[in-house]
Protein backbone atom coordinates (compact mmCIF):
# COMPACT_ATOMS: atom_id res chain seq x y z
CA UNK A 1 0.00 0.00 0.00
CA UNK A 2 3.00 2.32 0.17
CA UNK A 3 4.80 3.60 -2.86
CA UNK A 4 8.28 4.90 -3.44
CA UNK A 5 8.11 8.16 -5.28
CA UNK A 6 10.63 10.64 -6.60
CA UNK A 7 9.65 14.18 -7.39
CA UNK A 8 11.21 17.58 -7.71
CA UNK A 9 10.04 20.13 -5.18
CA UNK A 10 11.24 23.69 -5.59
CA UNK A 11 14.14 22.44 -7.66
CA UNK A 12 15.24 19.77 -5.19
CA UNK A 13 14.87 16.06 -5.75
CA UNK A 14 12.79 14.49 -3.02
CA UNK A 15 12.30 10.79 -2.43
CA UNK A 16 9.49 9.62 -0.23
CA UNK A 17 7.64 6.49 0.73
CA UNK A 18 3.99 7.36 0.77
CA UNK A 19 0.75 5.54 1.43
CA UNK A 20 -1.45 5.50 -1.66
CA UNK A 21 -4.08 7.59 0.05
CA UNK A 22 -1.74 10.38 1.16
CA UNK A 23 -2.48 13.66 -0.57
CA UNK A 24 0.18 15.84 -2.09
CA UNK A 25 -0.83 18.45 0.49
CA UNK A 26 -0.06 16.04 3.33
CA UNK A 27 3.26 15.09 1.75
CA UNK A 28 4.31 18.72 1.42
CA UNK A 29 3.22 19.82 4.90
CA UNK A 30 4.28 16.84 6.94
CA UNK A 31 7.27 14.84 5.78
CA UNK A 32 8.63 17.71 3.68
CA UNK A 33 7.78 20.42 6.26
CA UNK A 34 6.70 22.88 3.59
CA UNK A 35 3.96 24.44 5.69
CA UNK A 36 3.58 27.47 3.45
CA UNK A 37 0.97 25.45 1.57
CA UNK A 38 -2.21 25.75 3.63
CA UNK A 39 -5.29 23.61 4.04
CA UNK A 40 -8.50 25.62 4.03
CA UNK A 41 -11.20 23.11 3.14
CA UNK A 42 -9.82 19.78 1.95
CA UNK A 43 -12.22 19.58 -0.99
CA UNK A 44 -10.68 21.83 -3.63
CA UNK A 45 -13.07 24.71 -3.07
CA UNK A 46 -10.89 27.36 -1.40
CA UNK A 47 -7.54 27.28 -3.19
CA UNK A 48 -5.42 27.73 -0.04
CA UNK A 49 -3.39 24.65 -0.99
CA UNK A 50 -2.67 25.75 -4.55
CA UNK A 51 0.73 24.59 -5.81
CA UNK A 52 2.19 24.21 -9.27
CA UNK A 53 2.30 20.66 -10.57
CA UNK A 54 4.40 20.56 -13.72
CA UNK A 55 3.68 24.26 -14.01
CA UNK A 56 -0.09 23.99 -13.67
CA UNK A 57 -1.94 25.42 -10.68
CA UNK A 58 -3.70 22.62 -8.81
CA UNK A 59 -5.20 22.22 -5.36
CA UNK A 60 -2.84 19.88 -3.55
CA UNK A 61 -5.65 18.50 -1.38
CA UNK A 62 -7.11 16.78 -4.46
CA UNK A 63 -3.90 15.31 -5.80
CA UNK A 64 -2.52 12.09 -4.38
CA UNK A 65 1.14 12.23 -3.46
CA UNK A 66 1.69 9.14 -5.56
CA UNK A 67 0.20 10.91 -8.56
CA UNK A 68 2.99 13.45 -8.28
CA UNK A 69 5.62 10.76 -8.77
CA UNK A 70 8.01 12.00 -11.43
CA UNK A 71 6.52 15.50 -11.41
CA UNK A 72 7.87 18.95 -10.75
CA UNK A 73 6.21 20.75 -7.86
CA UNK A 74 6.55 24.39 -6.89
CA UNK A 75 5.29 25.66 -3.55
CA UNK A 76 5.40 29.15 -2.08
CA UNK A 77 8.77 28.31 -0.54
CA UNK A 78 10.16 28.10 -4.07
CA UNK A 79 8.88 31.47 -5.23
CA UNK A 80 11.72 33.59 -3.86
CA UNK A 81 15.11 33.05 -5.40
CA UNK A 82 17.98 32.79 -2.90
CA UNK A 83 16.12 34.99 -0.48
CA UNK A 84 15.37 37.53 -3.20
CA UNK A 85 11.63 38.11 -3.43
CA UNK A 86 10.10 37.62 -6.85
CA UNK A 87 8.51 40.57 -8.57
CA UNK A 88 5.16 38.99 -7.81
CA UNK A 89 5.89 38.68 -4.09
CA UNK A 90 7.10 42.27 -3.95
CA UNK A 91 3.97 43.41 -5.75
CA UNK A 92 1.81 41.66 -3.15
CA UNK A 93 3.64 43.57 -0.43
CA UNK A 94 3.47 46.90 -2.22
CA UNK A 95 -0.20 46.60 -3.11
CA UNK A 96 -1.21 45.59 0.42
CA UNK A 97 -2.54 42.32 -0.96
CA UNK A 98 -1.96 40.25 2.17
CA UNK A 99 -3.93 40.69 5.36
CA UNK A 100 -4.18 37.58 7.52
CA UNK A 101 -1.97 35.91 4.93
CA UNK A 102 -3.50 32.46 5.05
CA UNK A 103 -4.71 32.57 1.45
CA UNK A 104 -1.60 34.39 0.26
CA UNK A 105 0.64 31.45 -0.71
CA UNK A 106 -2.09 29.85 -2.81
CA UNK A 107 -3.03 33.19 -4.26
CA UNK A 108 0.55 33.89 -5.29
CA UNK A 109 0.90 30.49 -6.93
CA UNK A 110 -2.33 30.94 -8.90
CA UNK A 111 -0.97 34.29 -10.03
CA UNK A 112 2.44 32.77 -10.78
CA UNK A 113 0.84 30.14 -13.04
CA UNK A 114 -1.10 32.89 -14.80
CA UNK A 115 1.93 35.08 -15.42
CA UNK A 116 3.89 32.07 -16.67
CA UNK A 117 1.26 31.22 -19.27
CA UNK A 118 0.08 34.75 -20.01
CA UNK A 119 2.68 37.37 -19.10
CA UNK A 120 0.42 40.27 -19.97
CA UNK A 121 -2.98 39.18 -18.70
CA UNK A 122 -6.20 41.14 -18.98
CA UNK A 123 -8.02 42.02 -15.76
CA UNK A 124 -10.56 39.36 -16.67
CA UNK A 125 -7.84 36.73 -16.92
CA UNK A 126 -6.45 37.81 -13.56
CA UNK A 127 -9.86 37.45 -11.95
CA UNK A 128 -10.42 34.06 -13.58
CA UNK A 129 -7.01 32.85 -12.41
CA UNK A 130 -7.52 33.80 -8.75
CA UNK A 131 -11.29 33.31 -8.40
CA UNK A 132 -10.64 29.80 -7.12
CA UNK A 133 -8.67 31.22 -4.21
CA UNK A 134 -10.98 32.40 -1.46
CA UNK A 135 -9.85 35.35 0.62
CA UNK A 136 -11.98 36.59 3.49
CA UNK A 137 -9.90 39.67 4.38
CA UNK A 138 -8.99 41.81 1.43
CA UNK A 139 -12.04 41.98 -0.81
CA UNK A 140 -9.65 40.94 -3.63
CA UNK A 141 -9.13 44.42 -5.04
CA UNK A 142 -5.58 44.75 -3.74
CA UNK A 143 -4.77 41.23 -4.91
CA UNK A 144 -5.92 41.96 -8.45
CA UNK A 145 -3.90 45.18 -8.33
CA UNK A 146 -0.84 43.25 -7.14
CA UNK A 147 -0.98 40.80 -10.03
CA UNK A 148 -1.52 43.66 -12.46
CA UNK A 149 1.46 45.50 -10.97
CA UNK A 150 3.66 42.42 -11.16
CA UNK A 151 2.69 41.81 -14.79
CA UNK A 152 3.49 45.41 -15.66
CA UNK A 153 6.83 45.27 -13.89
CA UNK A 154 7.82 41.98 -15.42
CA UNK A 155 6.75 43.31 -18.81
CA UNK A 156 8.90 46.38 -18.21
CA UNK A 157 11.94 44.44 -17.09
CA UNK A 158 11.56 41.54 -19.47
CA UNK A 159 12.00 38.98 -16.73
CA UNK A 160 10.93 38.09 -13.25
CA UNK A 161 13.16 37.68 -10.26
Amino acid sequence: MTHEIVLTVNGQTERATVPASMTLLELLREPLHLTGTKEGCGIGECGACTVLLDGAAVTACLVLAVEADGCDVQTIEGEANDGQLSTLQQAFIDAGAAQCGFCTPGMILSARALLDRSPNPTDEEIVEAIAGNLCRCTGYEAIIAAVRRAADRIGGEGSDG
Binding site: T35, I76, E79, A80, L85, F92, G96, A98, G101
Partner: peptide
Amino acid sequence: ARDDAIDKVTGAAR
Protein backbone atom coordinates in the same frame (compact mmCIF):
# COMPACT_ATOMS: atom_id res chain seq x y z
CA ALA B 1 3.49 48.80 4.22
CA ARG B 2 2.59 45.94 6.51
CA ASP B 3 5.32 44.65 8.73
CA ASP B 4 4.29 41.03 8.39
CA ALA B 5 3.85 40.94 4.62
CA ILE B 6 7.27 39.44 3.93
CA ASP B 7 6.50 36.39 6.07
CA LYS B 8 3.15 36.02 4.39
CA VAL B 9 4.32 36.20 0.78
CA THR B 10 7.14 33.72 1.35
CA GLY B 11 5.22 31.08 3.27
CA ALA B 12 7.40 31.72 6.32
CA ALA B 13 4.47 32.90 8.44
CA ARG B 14 3.65 30.08 10.80
